[in-house]
Nucleic acid binder design. Structure first.
Lengths: 149, 149
DNA sequence: CTTAGTGCAAAGGTTTTGCAAATTG
DNA sequence: CAATTTGCAAAACCTTTGCACTAAG
């Protein structure tokens, strides 16, 4: 939290932007939140802290958080765009069941290594990755098999 | 193409849906297309084949293609939702420059292996993955360094 | 003080839906 | 034939923008 505060403050300063109370409010709401949240979710959460906050501010701040590297698109298939924290240390990747939508988060060190190889190969300075595995969980696989007898 | 036709036909049949000429048109346009395309792009492409086609049909068919596992969300950060083919054999992963937006597609066999380990560990029957690496390409990294002297 | 940020409401863009007519199995 | 699908236009939805006012550096 403290760290994210100052990361954001630094980012703003580097761009000649200002740390305002509205932005602090949105950041607090965002940090407290869990999972994937839409701009509307974040607005609701932020309004609990400051009811006078406008939705345009949330959209604008979310874009800044994303530029600052603190938030990233969570890439849902449907509905509004959703965002999630970017965790500096432990990347959490996603395993999603296409049957029931259940989502499991996991880490895999091999993938970190592979990532760095790719960056090197293409001359990139890496900043992050996002991996989504899709499949059927055991329950859904069983159900499907039964349906098809 | 032939294969995708019949995959789609099977999917439709399994759901009690019908293979119509509009759906064939959208499928053809989708298969011919390359890269990431929005519903609007697909509509334009499909209209070249059948000018009478309506946009609602494209949205509806795109959802079916996605349910059938032939199309998937390409996960851009901004603008309209974009879709891309699902390639059965060679997964192409994405390396994206956050500076200029340049996108490189690559394959990495280690990642295929890691993917299967994860699926096994969680009892999933896997169907695919999506990996996005983000960073600065050599050009953008250089530019940034110069700016900050 | 000067520049950037805010909330509001209106505009913009994308996607979905209701419906009567047309098409499919 | 019964059931699904279509194109159209309208509606719904999500996001951005213009503006007058306020707050930050």
């Amino acid at each position: 939290m403290k760290e994210e505060q100052s990361l954001f403050a630094n980012y703003l300063k580097s761009k000649g932007l200002k740390m305002t109370s509205a932005r602090r409010t949105v950041l607090r709401a965002f940090i407290k939140s869990e999972g994937h949240l839409s701009a509307e979710d974040l607005l609701a959460a932020a309004k609990k802290i400051d009811p006078g906050l406008g939705q345009a501010t949330v959209f604008r701040t979310l874009k800044l958080l994303s530029d600052a590297g603190l938030a990233q698109d969570a890439c849902q298939e449907e509905g509004p765009r959703r965002y999630e924290h970017v965790y500096k240390q432990s990347h959490h990747d996603h395993l999603i069941c296409i049957g029931c939508g259940k989502m499991i988060e996991f880490c895999h060190p091999e993938i970190e290594k592979a990532q760095n190889e790719i960056f090197k190969k293409f001359g990139f300075r890496g900043t992050g990755h996002k991996l989504e595995l899709r499949g059927l969980c055991a329950d859904c696989a069983r159900k499907l098999d039964e349906e098809n007898k």
